[in-house]
Amino acid sequence: MQISEEIKISDNGFVFNSRTGESFSLNPMGLEMIKMIAIDNGFDEIRESILEKYDVDELAFEKDFYEFLAMLKHHQLTQQGNPLDFV
């Protein structure tokens, strides 16, 4: 999954979509993850990084991560790929 080119992410968690004019806010964990996603990190790399740094188990992370991705997709912040390809 890739973040759309029109999406601008500030360091304080503010997200702006220049295509739709919509704006969003991220909590610190959301900001950290979207930054990793934006530079093309895959699930495994992100998981490894988060698990090493934070007090969270693998399953809890996986569930939250995919929910977060679903929300990014819901808000149309990701590039539209193959509609059959969920992530």
């Binding site: 997200v15 919509e22 704006s23 969003f24 806010s25 991220l26 909590n27 610190p28 964990m29 959301g30 950290e32 993850m33 979207i34 988060i50 740094k53 934070y54 007090d55 969270v56 809890a60 992370f61 939250d64 991560f65 929910e67 977060f68 929300m71 990014l72 808000h75 912040l77």
Partner: peptide, 14 residues
């Protein structure tokens, strides 16, 4: 010691 984890959240600003 690991940092406290929080669920990642994005919410639309209205």
């Amino acid at each position: 010691k690991k940092s406290t984890y929080e669920k990642p959240i994005i919410s639309k600003i209205t």
